[in-house]
Write a protein that binds this DNA or RNA. Structure first.
Lengths: 142, 142
DNA sequence: GGTTTAAAAGACAATTTGGTCCTTATTAAA
DNA sequence: TTTAATAAGGACCAAATTGTCTTTTAAACC
């Protein structure tokens, strides 16, 4: 469904969202807590920073923090930044141009599933996910 | 969402389902109509044949035909044969063991989307997709 | 200013996926 | 029984994704 980069990115973002506002978290710590490969996660965080959902700081006391309140960042922004639009708009059978005016055989059935996914991603904020972690009802690793 | 192999496989199956019952369709024709790479499609059809949703015949007048009535074959069988269980059961964040008893942060939201996809795939038969093609309301290529 | 710390950037390696080509096996038909 | 047609199988190649390592850049602190 999502790329590995995206999975790591989402987990990293949720972990960062768990910190106090403005608090910086280092790459090493993020990779450790999320059980993700450090160097690869670094690349992913760069992408997220370039896309403006994350801000990064170099040097001692450096690290990453959210660019805005965790309630203002949703999963769709993260997925879009890392994996692109494909999953939100792509055709189920890979056709370049597939829409209601010239649909592939699965277009309408697929579109409704895809729209459900899109709605879920857009309506899920980092805040609520981080809150679940705080409450101990959900987990970032097994 | 689906692998390329799976996209080609679904298109091929729909096209085969369009033929008269028992009629054999050759690889070359399938690849041409579905605009899929011939040799790669051959591999995919082999997989589908091994999984019993397709039967193949060698020699002159050889080709492929459905193993049973098109109304009895659904998209889930095809996707499962080619891409495996992952898309039906996998965790959104890639956790090996993620379930209701130890859920990842997106588990419940993701599961409901995934279940929607699963339901759609299970309830969509090749027959209805082929019927759409016959009716000219949907298309296998752009 | 020099030193240390941490992210950015780029080169590179490994793996997976997508794709081709060539040979072999099987079967229908001449 | 030979020939031609067609799928199966295996070797191989290409591209994308995943992952590592090394160097550079920026910032804090002495």
């Amino acid at each position: 469904m999502f790329s590995k980069a995206c999975e790591y990115g989402i987990k990293a973002m949720i972990y960062i969202a768990q910190q106090e506002v403005g608090q910086r978290v280092g790459l090493k710590q993020i990779a450790q807590v999320t059980e993700s490969p450090e160097a690869f996660t670094a690349k992913t965080l760069q992408i997220l920073a370039r896309n403006g959902v994350l801000v990064s700081f170099k040097g001692p006391t450096g690290g990453f923090s959210l660019s805005k309140d965790s309630s203002k960042i949703n999963l769709a922004q993260i997925v879009k930044a890392i994996d692109g639009e494909e999953i939100f708009t792509g055709c189920g059978l890979g056709l370049e141009k597939c829409d209601a005016s010239r649909p592939c055989p699965v277009h309408f059935k697929f579109a409704s599933v895809r729209d459900g996914l899109s709605l879920m991603l857009h309506s899920t904020s980092l805040k609520e996910l981080a809150d679940g972690l705080d409450a101990g009802t959900v987990f970032l690793t097994q």
